[in-house]
């Protein structure tokens, strides 16, 4: 006998099949938009590959940092945090990476994480990869770095600046995602702007607590690294270190 209670249990087992999270779902961007965002993303990806190759050629420490950045992004994007709206979303871990390996290298890291999610979790999609990667792995880290620089100039303490940079970088990703969705699916009556407000309403509310948690986590892990003399607090976001690595990297490549 199938009782009502049994049906409920069955339903609850089948329920989690629905996807969750943050990325634009497979097939939800019309072909021309998915192509356009992919084209926009490609130059960033090429720059990223160059940056990663140079950093890999540096030193074992550099390689360790890169591995840690990828690992951090993996952990954070599997953290489905509940939010006040009764929906969940996950963090991106991009701020941490932007602080340690620079915004350009993050395009590669973001791609790795997104591909993992597409193929193993059906989360996000191949046709929306360009758009998602642009939002998460380009705009996010670049905004993070900019915010950090501005806050640092206005004499914010290092950790406060890092926290806000990560939070705003994370939120920026969702702003871009909302813009992308709004451009592809303008509202029938209120147009692109109305659609944007609708999407930002969904993503934004869910995302604020998640972004704050990501900011706190980022500061925490950076603290652990500083505490163990692995990195210097002053070398966070310092593009000088990346630059000096670049020179060495070129010398290495010539050999």
């Amino acid at each position: 006998m199938i009782t009502k209670a049994n049906w409920l249990v069955l339903l609850m087992v089948l329920m989690p099949l629905q996807a969750f999270g943050m990325h634009i779902m497979e097939g939800y961007l019309p072909a021309q938009w998915s192509l356009a965002w992919s084209v926009v993303f490609i130059p960033f990806l090429l720059l990223g590959i160059k940056s990663v190759r140079q950093q890999l050629a540096q030193s074992p420490e550099r390689r360790m940092i890169l591995a840690m950045v990828v690992a951090f992004a993996f952990v954070l994007s599997s953290l489905k945090l509940p939010s006040v709206t009764g929906s969940s979303s996950h963090a991106t871990g991009m701020g941490f990476g932007a602080a340690l390996v620079g915004p350009m290298a993050m395009s590669v890291v973001g791609c790795i994480v997104l591909l993992f999610q597409v193929f193993l979790l059906a989360h996000g999609g191949i046709t929306t990869l360009g758009a998602n990667a642009f939002a998460m792995a380009c705009v996010g880290p670049i905004i993070t770095v900019l915010v950090f620089k501005i806050l640092k100039k206005s004499r914010c303490s290092l950790r406060v600046a890092l926290f806000f940079a990560t939070v705003i970088g994370n939120l920026a990703t969702y702003m871009v995602t909302s813009v992308q969705l709004a451009l592809a699916h303008p509202d029938a009556s209120s147009g692109v702007w109305g659609a944007f407000l609708k999407f930002i309403g969904i993503f934004g509310l869910t995302q604020v607590p998640v972004a704050i948690v990501e900011g706190l986590l980022t500061v925490m892990v950076i603290n652990i690294l500083v505490q163990n003399d692995f990195i210097k607090a002053s070398s966070i976001f310092s593009m000088n270190s990346v630059k000096s690595f670049k020179k060495k990297g070129l010398a290495h490549e010539k050999r």
Partner: peptide, 21 residues
């Protein structure tokens, strides 16, 4: 933060934000 969010949001049978979108 997530604890508070759960407490305020009520349930954990959430669909994701992208499903809502």
């Amino acid at each position: 933060i997530p604890t508070l969010a759960l407490w305020m949001g009520g349930n954990s049978e959430f669909g994701g934000a992208d499903t809502m979108a």
